[in-house]
Design a protein around this nucleic acid. Sequence first.
DNA 1: CCTATATGCAACCTTATGGTTGCTTTTCAT
DNA 2: ATGAAAAGCAACCATAAGGTTGCATATAGG
Lengths: 112, 112
Amino acid sequence: MLRASARARRPDFAPVFAALGDRTRLSLVGRLADGVPRSIAALTEDGAITRQAVTKHLRVLEGAGLVRAERSGRESLYALRPEPLEAARAYLAGVSRQWDDALGRLKAFVDG
Amino acid sequence: MLRASARARRPDFAPVFAALGDRTRLSLVGRLADGVPRSIAALTEDGAITRQAVTKHLRVLEGAGLVRAERSGRESLYALRPEPLEAARAYLAGVSRQWDDALGRLKAFVDG
DNA sequence: CCTATATGCAACCTTATGGTTGCTTTTCAT
DNA sequence: ATGAAAAGCAACCATAAGGTTGCATATAGG
């Protein structure tokens, strides 16, 4: 039963949203959205926060699949991975669509 | 300077994502997506969790604007508010678009 | 009126989170 | 070869998060 297992294995988006649910992390995602991989030091540059804190945030993002690290010499470069972002976007679109459909049916019922 | 203040007041989505970043809460949102307001008791029915815990989650969702409570007699009915969901969706779309544009420019440069 | 239902409030517990500091290790460049 | 730069590791701290239990309050309905 492919359809059943496909339905059963719906990925759970909570971790992705949780990873995005922090100002600092959201800002990191925003900064990496230009497609340029950056080192931890580069991402710390604004100085608002310690390098270690940035590292932790990057690990969280990596854990949610939102970012990927690649070591290059003495620095490790973090790059955005758009796939889970897109998946989360699609998920939200689905919920919104469900809502709109429901309202549509309600209106049809009332009018009908 | 209307434009400047409009730009300055970009809503910050972290709280919305944070509210969505929990399985239970995400499930509540999913259940309310059919447009039917539900009481706390109704939303607790599966019994996986205490009514109090559900209440707390609903308050968090309400704090993020994702849900709205209206008291009706002895029960308070919670209804989904699609606006912040849609806004969050649009935000993610924006990040994805930025990423795609960046890749497009990079490709144009390489090919160029 | 009295009782069962629905919710609210408050205290409490455990673990996760966001952040720091200090020290070590790897690597680049002079 | 040596010093500075980049990152890793580990311990620690304070607070927030998710959850529970116990008790109080309001309302629906016989």
